[in-house]
Amino acid sequence: MELFVQSLVSGILLGGLYAAIGVGLSLVFGIMGLTNIAHGSLLILSSFFIMIFVQAFGGSIILAFAITIVLMIAVGVLLQGFLINRVISKGAEPALLVTFGVAIIIWNILEFFFGANFFRLSNPLTGINVVSTRWMIIPATALFNLGISTVVILALHFVIQKTLFGRAIRAAAGNVNAAELMGINTSRTYIYAMCLALATSSVGGLLVGQTFGFFSFSGMGYLIIAFGVVVIGGMGSILGTFLGGIILGVAQLLGGYFFGPGVQTLVGYLTLLVLLTLRPQGLLGNMTRK
């Protein structure tokens, strides 16, 4: 019973991290309908950026994180402006291959510079627990992950739903032609969306770097988590992504509790499949795209 409660709590906390991994993809996926295979590698890229700047600027992780966000926005402008915008209208497959190509390039360039070494962002919260009793433990790191992820997702939801900028983005997502007629430059809107996505992905990069650590080629492993979280929540629904993250985290941990540690990940995926079968548009998905 204690372990059940512990698994449930750990699952929710882990789910917060999953939501942070997926939220950037949710934006890109929902607004452009782009299957961004490079998402995982971009996330790890931001982890590497943070690590580099922490070393370069005397260990301040906040400063390093701020610089990383700026840099990732620049990456977003280049990526969307020079590559993806040119192929996005040509159908799903060319965009798929381009993002595959970008993913492969990023992780191999990282490997070129950093080898196959394991890295980790130094985490001052390691070993500290918020709740520490015999029957339940809430590590500070996990709670921090959930908290940051909640804040980011609520902020993003507010931006998308309530601001003029968000309305332009949603208009471009709903109907490209109508949006163009209304004077919205969809190419530029897509660039904004990608930048916003990459900026939020760096939050994921920070949390992943502090919690799990990373290799140059870890990106693909996080990509499948991100995709799972996004489709289960529903395309284009930021809050859905949060829900999706929690569901995946809880499903994995309870799967481990009921069926043993080996099938933890498998149970997570099977839960996603079952939910997708029941709700093919995702749990909170209401936005449809052609």
Binding site: Q6, S10, F212, G256, Y257, P261, G262, Q264
Partner: peptide, 15 residues
């Protein structure tokens, strides 16, 4: 029991 290398969490095992 054996765990999967892709596992993100060791809560159950450690408990």
């Amino acid at each position: 029991g054996a765990f999967d290398a892709a596992t993100p969490d060791f809560t159950g095992i450690i408990s």
